[in-house]
Amino acid sequence: MSQETKFKCLKCGHEYVEKYAPDDDIERACPKCHSNSVRPEKPKKADVAEKK
């Protein structure tokens, strides 16, 4: 299921939030510099525990 996930562009450093699921079929690009090197931030353990 898609979740709001923080992405970081490894080209320009821009950070933004977008819906993301590991199996989604979306070509991602940084909204600022359009680079495809955008990395989803993994949920921290504390966040996972909070959701449970």
Binding site: L10, K11, E27, S35, N36, S37, R39
Partner: peptide, 9 residues
């Protein structure tokens, strides 16, 4: 630094 690996379409 992971930035040293880039991905582009």
């Amino acid at each position: 630094r992971p930035e040293r690996l880039q991905l582009e379409w």
